[in-house]
Amino acid sequence: MSKLDWLFDRATPRFGQMTVWLLLLFAVVLALSPIEFDAGPRSEHPATVFSWLPASLIQNQAIFTCVRAGLMISAALWALRIWIPFSCWTTVACFTLMWSLRMENLTNGAHIFNVTNMLLVIHAMWFHFYRHEIRSGIQEGTFWTDKNYPRWVFWLCVFYLGWFHSLAGFTKLACCGPAWGNGTSMQLWVNLFGWKASPLAQVMLFDSRLTAVLQTGALVIECLSIVAIFHWALRYLVGFGLIGFYIGVLGTFVTFGFHFNAILVAMFLLPCDRLFGLNFDQTESPPSAPLSTITTDD
């Protein structure tokens, strides 16, 4: 286990808390977003982990309203660090159910909240395992100076972001092989869905050979995203590559809603950790909350 001790190095919670607030802001955006219910028969294939629920519940507007309210309340409680870790897990459950209900009731949908959802799970795990230190820090007014943010939270977020984007690349390779980035397909997507007046769209529509270079570059960056977990330099390299990719996506496919993913990529894969002064130390447990005294009240 000593080989994995680095996962338990700790830092002050500024970066982690900022991330939680950002994720909860995304959750509120989702809760406030309108939903449309498409008409049609239900798919035989499960679309979400909640597909086992009866159609009468999944298609019930009242249930949707309750989940919406539950998400707003639990997110507010978590943001204020009240009723943790129950507010954290309630937020995760409501968020997952909220987006699942949308996917269950639509014929088309994008993957704009998978990353937010999984990062919420990771941060709920953090608040769950470190609830005693966090509560103690809040009570004693030392929350912001205590070393109660473990490295594994940050590492799992990097892992998920890397794997999510690598999967996108692997799926393309599995479907079409390396020739996926031939430039023509990208030109067709830009022509159909893109904001054609944008400078990048103009460039892509101008010459399919240039577009093929950009498209293949995006494929390479996507496939290699998972290497971000191995070293901070690789993380920044992948981060800059993915942000370049997202600038292209957001500047062309304006309405697709990938802003959330782009912000989280910037947060974890660009040097934002340095900006926030994230510095992990080999700390076992903070002096304000020794484990021998805090594991008894659970």
Binding site: V49, S51, A110, M118, W163, T171
Partner: peptide, 27 residues
Amino acid sequence: NLLAPIVFGELYPFTVSPMFSDQPSQY
């Protein structure tokens, strides 16, 4: 997260990130 996309495919919150994985030549 490593196995679920491979075993279940597209099952929210798990995903194989399939967007734009095709290769159209016309529309």
